[in-house]
Design a protein around this nucleic acid. Structure first.
Lengths: 201, 201
DNA sequence: TTTTGACCCTTGAAATAAAAAAGTCAAAAA
DNA sequence: TTTTTGACTTTTTTATTTCAAGGGTCAAAA
């Protein structure tokens, strides 16, 4: 039913708006319903529980992310340039959805059910496979030296994610990192990416 | 007074034994005293408070660490080999003193006072300066390309620390990471170090 | 088929009480 | 005089209780 799917999307977008400002756990189903001017049971008509709604939100965010990087991927030739572009895309998502704590290698306490955690890890895995594909391509091109593409992607992404998680911990323990911290983080990731790609040649 | 210093060292070593097994916060001054067969006020005769004792412990651990890496440093020629050797030393310390949570870029909740945190950060800074020295040396040798040695050291150490903090979060949320997790972490750090150094050439 | 007001039950935050640990001191021992 | 201690006080942590808030349901209405 296309109408039902549209309603679902509307609810997901409403939920995202709240989640961005207050995080998942501090957003109630009532608040989401009120924002959309419907009653709580209406929400439950479209989503069996809060978990399913959060799942829908995560799915939406990641599918937006993958759409963007796949589009960029088609427009760029060199591995190093691709990775730099993806870092900036990732960074935009990281900032925008910071309150959902979807970054940092592993899911944090926001994702309280096993179902959510495993779905999140699936998205991370998909990202890894995508990057592995890039590395493999570059190997075939002769752009970088022979290597295990999957292991390389894993190491590369872990290094980048490690940088972010450190920068967050490092800085002031505020709810939200400062603009400066975000910028430092981005710069470090870019520098690391450059060195990393050069090191693969 | 050399006798007093000896007593202080004995107490520090006793404290370390407890800290290694139960962490800083779950070790009481009473337990340390009992282990050493003295009374609690004796401890307070040598250390004004628990913080000072923890400070002594951190100092001891880091001075052991620096002693080891400086000795290795003198015996190795190439930058890449030095870094690999230091990773293994760091790894041994990381495992041994895991319960003190001294690794991971920034001090965690174990270090509850501002004094301890800042001292810990000073040690990290010293490590960074040491590594910056190595990079500068390698630049002067022509072993790696011209670059900002300090920034490079910062990025290098953050990348390594990021890897560890991710591996810890990633794995089972047990009190103590498994042998396998430690091994994976070490391998990733070594691989990253190799690629990083190559990328600096 | 979709929406809702009224309801139930579980969970989590706030408040409080109890326990444990940090830290002190006067006096004894070395 | 320096070092050690038992007994004590104060602070911090942990456990327990209470209670409101939020997740989830249902019969009835639109």
């Amino acid at each position: 039913m296309v109408e039902t799917d549209k309603k679902r999307d509307t609810i997901i977008e409403g939920a995202i708006k709240r989640f961005i400002h207050y995080g998942i756990n501090k957003t109630t189903m009532n608040e989401i319903a009120e924002d959309l001017s419907v009653s709580k049971p209406s929400l439950y008509y479209y989503f069996p529980d809060k978990n399913s709604l959060v799942l829908g939100v995560i799915d939406k965010i990641f599918s937006d992310y993958f759409e963007l990087i796949e589009k960029e991927n088609a427009a760029i030739v060199l591995l190093g340039d691709k990775l730099l572009s993806f870092i900036e895309i990732g960074h935009r998502f990281f900032q925008k959805y910071y309150m959902l704590h979807l970054s940092g290698g592993s899911p944090d306490s926001s994702l309280n059910s096993e179902e959510l955690r495993s779905h999140f890890m699936k998205m991370k895995e998909k990202n890894k496979q995508f990057h592995a594909g890039l590395f493999q391509e570059a190997i075939n091109n002769g752009e970088i030296a022979e290597a295990d593409a999957e292991k390389t992607a894993d190491l590369y992404l872990d290094s980048l994610a490690g940088i972010s998680s450190l920068c967050i911990l490092h800085g002031n323990k505020e709810l939200f990192p400062s603009k400066k911290e975000f910028k430092t983080m981005l710069e470090k990731q870019i520098n690391l990416s450059r060195i990393f790609v050069k090191g693969l040649k």
